[in-house]
């Protein structure tokens, strides 16, 4: 069963086509890494999945349910609002720039959505926050404001915040790109643990080491097209697509 699937997903900003017929699917428990040069549409793809960008054409399925279908900027079908919101909640998202809520402490950041969206009581949410923050190694930072934490700690806090909504799939949008090099490891460590625990993940990343080690499948994206798809071994050692070859040569 696929957790998230897109069929011929297209996205244009005015005349600029950012995504062209991207058809991908992610199975339960799978870790999909999306790599590629900047401007390839990797982030836009994640954002389109999570409804942060409206898609122009194509179909989006979550749990094999058609969530919405668009055709050249016109909506063909969309689930009723409540159902739509419920399915979108199955996705948790981690951003490149963390996007933590600076006016709330670590615990409050994690608690916000469970209390106001999930309808969990404050005491329960607090317990949940403590659990999640412990999972990412921030037990001692529960009452700190984000500004008091390092970039790596902030990103781990963002992961805890997303996990608190119990998503079925986690979307990571270049989670380590804004970090100092020495802080990358701690975030990747948390992500690897998450992958090991069976979480379904889509990771847009420039960390080839991580893609190679933790991903089940790698997609090379270029000019808005999913140009090549395969196991990490295949794709990294023997890329077929000439652009993929060139890209991997330039960074490895």
């Amino acid at each position: 069963m696929s957790v998230v699937r897109t069929e011929n997903l297209c996205k244009s900003f005015g005349q600029l086509e950012v995504l062209k017929d991207v058809s991908l699917s992610v199975e339960q428990g799978e870790v999909l890494a999306i790599i590629g040069p900047s401007g390839a549409g990797k982030s836009t793809y994640l954002r389109a999945l999570n409804h942060l960008e409206t898609i122009t054409s194509g179909k989006l399925y979550i749990d094999d349910i058609l969530v919405e279908e668009w055709h050249h900027g016109h909506m063909k079908s969309k689930l009723p609002h409540k159902e739509h919101a419920r399915l979108l909640l199955k996705m948790g998202m981690v951003f490149q720039r963390f996007n933590l809520f600076p006016h709330l402490t670590a615990a409050e950041n994690v608690m916000l959505a469970p209390v106001h969206v999930g309808g969990v009581s404050k005491t329960e949410a607090r317990k949940l926050a403590e659990e999640q923050l412990e999972k990412v190694g921030l037990s001692d930072k529960i009452n700190e404001y984000p500004s008091k934490l390092s970039g790596g700690q902030q990103q781990r806090m963002a992961i805890a915040r997303a996990l608190a909504m119990h998503p079925e799939i986690m979307l990571f949008d270049e989670p380590t790109s804004a970090l100092d090099p020495e802080l990358v490891g701690e975030v990747l460590g948390v992500m690897k643990n998450l992958a090991k625990s069976g979480m379904t993940m889509i990771v847009v990343t420039h960390e080839m080491g991580f893609a190679r080690e933790a991903a089940n499948r790698v997609v090379f994206m270029c000019d808005g097209v999913a140009a090549e798809e395969g196991s990490p071994d295949e794709l990294f050692t023997n890329p077929q697509n000439p652009r993929a070859k060139q890209f991997l040569q330039s960074i490895l």
Binding site: L52, R97, A113, V117, R161, M165
Partner: peptide
């Protein structure tokens, strides 16, 4: 206020 704040809120279902 940074646009990311609204995006993070939406991503959390707010």
């Amino acid at each position: 206020i940074d646009k990311g704040q609204m995006e993070a809120s939406k991503a959390l279902g707010l």
